[in-house]
Amino acid sequence: MHLSLAVLSKKAIEASLQLKWKEAIELNNTILKEYPNNTDAKIRLGRAYMQEKDFTKAKRIFKEVLKSDPINALALKNLELAKNGKSDCPIGSSSHLNTKSLLKEPGTTYETKVPIKTKSLHINDFQSGEELLIKIRKKSIDIYKIKKGKKVLVGEIIDSYIVQRLVYSTNKGEKINVSFVRGKDKDIWVLIKASAPIFKPDKLDIRPYLKKGTIEEPEMEM
């Protein structure tokens, strides 16, 4: 049965988390057959090839990404690693990256943009899944990263809805994690993840009627 992009993406991420690189390659290739311009799937595919030591295919994938997005920080960084015959997260190595933190769950996760304030920071200083530090204030949330052993201010979130939700959750004793997702120019996107549902789930756009007298059956996911 046909699976949606969201389901396939989740399966591809989970395969990587379980170090099932061949399965991750297959799933991301499946996504790209249906969605050939999906950059996230290409990045995941390239990194899976790197873990399988197939650096030739990895380089080809990252070069494809850079044709349409010449300043994609993840593609640039991973292409350089692939050229040197290295993978960014060798099995068994210690790392501050947490790829599992990028899994989105209704009610507990929220993605938002954060403009980079510190001039010395650039998007290529971040890695996908990197955990960031936060300081919750009454009207804003400061985002920090560790660079060369020092805590550096990245920027702040001033969206009142997000601030209110995080203030509420911390008062309730809930745990909050923030992870880097992607970046472009002087902006980064982060995924906020709470230990309990605090956000409104995304609304589904359901339009059952195609035309008078016919009903569109919703796609089933397995």
Rank of each mutant, 00 (worst) to 15 (best):
residue 40 D to V: 10
residue 39 T to E: 08
residue 1 M to K: 14
residue 222 M to D: 10
residue 18 Q to C: 03
residue 46 G to K: 03
residue 36 P to S: 10
residue 120 S to G: 02
residue 41 A to Y: 01
residue 77 K to V: 10
residue 119 K to W: 06
residue 201 P to G: 05
residue 181 V to I: 13
residue 164 Q to A: 02
residue 101 S to L: 08
residue 198 I to P: 01
residue 12 A to W: 01
residue 103 L to V: 11
residue 50 M to S: 13
residue 95 S to L: 11
residue 10 K to F: 02
residue 206 I to W: 12
residue 162 I to P: 00
residue 140 S to T: 00
residue 172 K to S: 09
residue 52 E to H: 08
residue 99 T to M: 07
residue 118 T to A: 12
residue 135 K to V: 02
residue 188 I to C: 10
residue 10 K to A: 06
residue 129 G to S: 02
residue 77 K to G: 11
residue 197 P to M: 08
residue 62 F to L: 09
residue 180 F to Y: 14
residue 34 E to G: 04
residue 208 P to M: 09
residue 82 A to I: 13
residue 5 L to W: 05
residue 10 K to Y: 05
residue 19 L to D: 14
residue 151 K to L: 07
residue 137 R to S: 02
residue 117 K to P: 00
residue 195 S to Y: 08
residue 103 L to W: 11
residue 1 M to Y: 14
residue 201 P to T: 06
residue 37 N to Q: 12
residue 20 K to Y: 09
residue 52 E to Q: 14
residue 129 G to V: 05
residue 28 N to Q: 15
residue 13 I to V: 14
residue 120 S to N: 10
residue 124 N to S: 11
residue 200 K to A: 09
residue 4 S to K: 13
residue 96 H to M: 04
residue 138 K to N: 07
residue 97 L to P: 01
residue 11 K to T: 03
residue 14 E to P: 02
residue 52 E to R: 11
residue 141 I to H: 00
residue 73 A to E: 15
residue 64 E to D: 15
residue 94 S to A: 13
residue 153 L to W: 07
residue 32 L to H: 01
residue 125 D to G: 09
residue 178 V to E: 00
residue 31 I to D: 02
residue 29 N to D: 14
residue 85 G to C: 07
residue 34 E to Y: 02
residue 87 S to F: 10
residue 206 I to D: 06
residue 80 E to G: 01
residue 177 N to V: 01
residue 15 A to F: 06
residue 105 E to D: 09
residue 16 S to D: 01
residue 146 I to L: 12
residue 194 A to M: 01
residue 121 L to V: 02
residue 11 K to P: 01
residue 205 D to L: 13
residue 176 I to C: 04
residue 49 Y to H: 15
residue 82 A to W: 07
residue 137 R to W: 01
residue 165 R to M: 01
residue 104 K to D: 02
residue 156 E to C: 09
residue 97 L to C: 06
residue 119 K to D: 13
residue 26 E to C: 07
residue 182 R to K: 15
